Simulated assay, not measured.
Amino acid sequence: MDIASLNKTVVKRFNSAFMEKADLKVLPEIVADDFINHTAAKMVSSDVAGLIRFIEILHGGFSEIKVDIHEMIAEGDLVATRKTIHAVHTGMIFGHAPTGKAVTFSVMDFVKLRGGKYIAHWGQNNVMEVIGQL
């Protein structure tokens, strides 16, 4: 398997195991200890601990999380994705009581990998905009 294909496999696993299922056990296998999220939300740190905190916040406020990757492009150590995250607002999040509403978040990510592990992330999403509309 070439490096681009391997990296795409890791990104798919990150989204299915970590984003959708909040499986923290998978992180050491696919995220490097020196990981840096260059576009981390202000309420979380830019390291692995911030990644864990983000997923705790997301899964605390939403259930039935499903990630649909629409496009994925890999070149060398970089993988870009355009995806939609579908969820249901079933928990308290940033002062918003559960509404039971289905929500969708639009996301574009760039991930840099080394040896099959995330080492850097840059992204844009509308998560806070959607939460603000609850």
Rank of each mutant, 00 (worst) to 15 (best):
A32M: 01
A32D: 15
A32F: 03
D33C: 00
D33P: 05
D33K: 05
D33Q: 13
F35N: 01
I36A: 10
N37M: 00
N37H: 02
N37S: 05
H38V: 01
H38W: 02
T39Q: 05
A40D: 02
A40I: 01
A41Y: 14
K42L: 02
M43C: 03
M43N: 11
V44Q: 06
S46P: 15
D47C: 05
V48L: 10
G50K: 14
G50L: 00
R53T: 07
I55Q: 15
E56A: 10
E56D: 15
L58F: 12
H59D: 09
H59E: 08
G60D: 04
G60E: 05
G61W: 04
G61R: 13
F62V: 01
F62Y: 12
S63Q: 09
E64S: 13
I65V: 15
I65M: 05
I65Q: 05
V67G: 04
D68T: 15
I69D: 01
I69A: 03
I69K: 05
I69R: 02
H70E: 15
E71F: 12
M72D: 00
M72V: 08
I73E: 01
A74G: 13
E75I: 01
G76D: 11
D77H: 11
L78P: 01
L78E: 09
L78M: 12
V79Q: 06
A80Y: 04
A80H: 07
T81C: 14
R82K: 13
R82P: 04
K83H: 09
T84A: 10
T84M: 06
I85T: 13
I85G: 10
H86T: 09
A87R: 05
V88R: 10
H89G: 10
H89M: 11
T90E: 13
G91H: 09
M92Q: 14
I93V: 15
I93K: 07
I93D: 00
F94E: 03
F94W: 13
F94T: 05
G95I: 11
G95P: 07
H96F: 08
A97L: 11
A97Q: 14
P98N: 04
P98H: 12
K101I: 04
K101D: 04
A102G: 07
A102Q: 14
V103K: 14
T104Y: 02
F105W: 11
S106F: 06
M108D: 01
D109N: 14
F110V: 14
V111C: 05
V111D: 02
V111S: 03
V111T: 07
K112M: 08
K112P: 01
L113N: 12
L113H: 13
G116P: 13
G116R: 07
G116K: 06
G116E: 09
K117T: 04
I119V: 15
I119P: 10
H121K: 14
W122Y: 07
W122L: 05
G123Y: 11
Q124S: 14
Q124G: 15
Q124F: 03
N125K: 06
